[in-house]
Design a protein around this nucleic acid. Structure first.
Lengths: 257, 257
DNA sequence: CGATACATTGAGCTGCCTCAATTGTCGTGG
DNA sequence: CCACGACAATTGAGGCAGCTCAATGTATCG
């Protein structure tokens, strides 16, 4: 056992109670901590995908580089996130991943996942939910890119990050730290850095959003959600009910544990 | 047993051999066929997500409706696809799903999935891969939306559909049926229908792509991929290797089957 | 103190949008 | 068989959101 819950275990406990075996299975994913400097790469597009990662500390992001030198950022990762779940099946990583801050990551081989599948159907359920959540985030970002203007894009993304942050660290208020440069934001949102700057100016002048250095301040969260057309359902997680069913199933035969 | 493989079983066999138990688990998902007319809804955004669907025949799509009346299409589904995998964890569907053609769908309760998790770690692995593939498709579309112009967007999407089609039905040549109106394409790509039309005209005049009614003709596939900046890695599936590992694991203890 | 990265602001351009009118295609019913 | 209506596609005209290029300002750090 561990003397103290790892980041991942803490994250999972948010979803369901874990017995000893399960906690150990998860802890196995965080056996090999590795400190990372800002901007350091975890892996690059097209490289063999034999390991995935738990992000234990710090922020990271995944992206695809374009031929013309630009890039599209696909995902922002926070502590407790598993990085590369979607690269589970292809032989090679589909995206590059790099750090946004200093931090700690723990690589683990793909086997650990299949091992979990074979051992705990409850953890499998949670993992599946997590993968689904990541997909939901990407779906929402697709909507963002396709059908919203710059103002809404920026606002919506800030709302999303704010909500995700307040889930992992509950003391997040209307002010919080967001270590993303305007260039990074532009690469997330499919805008130019210049236009992101103008958009921030606009929002600031209307008193809706203040940003200096990497601090964000949203004076009126409700009004801001309005601007963004933000709805939080896509980030709501309710694995509990699923697990109840799963447990019922296993008691009534056919199940594993 | 079934006298004839269901659509889904056929799809899964593409990934790995199935024993009798596994085939039955999968077949259970297609127990309740239901014929659907064109444009009929499978479910709507925000409605309770207690069942998912296998698409047995026909095409379908998922989308999000915006306040201003527009919509963003998130995914196009082909026969053999499981619809709603990403709605697995939230209590409510995050997207609406409707048919693009006539067809047949089979609803099944969420339990069936958790049941699979608890019974076959091999099927679980395949399911996880499928979910990953859907996410890869969405990631690619995100890149499309963020960093490509209309011409590339249209071309890239056509390439993607062409490839996906030729995987499920091998007799797809450089001509194929694509039952998507220009309005639908616009809603996929975040463009206006008018501009999609102009883009098709442009591509036609350059001899790169012909489209009339719902038939597509790509005279020179290689040249067309060039225009699109299309790379097919993100649609490559290699679950086989994963399963080998999974099997090895289970033989050496800790595993299930 | 200079170097480097990040942010702001202006000017001019363009890709895509909106609105609107026209044509083509199909299915339906008289 | 033709007339009709519904829908999909095309084409033109004009507008604007967001782009690029470039210059300047500002903070951080060795």
């Amino acid at each position: 056992m561990l003397d103290r819950d790892s980041c991942l275990v803490r994250n999972f406990k948010h979803y369901c109670a874990l017995d000893e075996t399960e906690a150990e299975l998860l802890a196995a994913l965080e056996k090999t901590p590795q400190t990372m400097s800002n901007a350091q790469m975890l892996w690059e597009e097209n490289h063999p995908a034999d390991t995935l990662c738990v992000l234990s500390e710090g922020w990271a992001y995944s992206y695809r580089s374009m031929d013309d030198g630009t890039r599209q950022i696909l995902n922002i990762f926070l502590p407790g996130d598993i990085i590369g779940l979607s690269d589970f099946s292809p032989r090679r990583h589909l995206t590059s991943v790099a750090m946004l801050t200093e931090g700690v990551v723990c690589r683990f081989p793909l086997n650990n996942l299949t091992n979990i599948f074979a051992t705990s159907s409850r953890l499998t359920t949670v993992l599946f939910s997590l993968a689904g959540q990541q997909q939901a985030i990407m779906a929402e970002r697709l909507v963002n890119m396709g059908r919203r203007n710059a103002r809404e894009k920026v606002a919506h993304f800030i709302c999303e990050m704010h909500l995700r942050l307040s889930k992992t660290c509950p003391n997040t208020s209307h002010q919080f730290h967001l270590p993303l440069s305007q260039q990074v934001l532009a690469d997330v949102l499919g805008l130019s850095a210049v236009h992101v700057s103008r958009t921030f100016s606009e929002l600031r002048e209307e008193g809706l959003l203040y940003r200096e250095r990497n601090r964000i301040d949203i004076p009126d969260l409700k009004a801001f959600h309005e601007v963004a057309g933000f709805s939080d359902i896509y980030l709501s997680d309710s694995v509990d009910e699923l697990l109840e069913r799963s447990d019922r199933d296993s008691h009534s035969g056919g199940g594993l544990r």
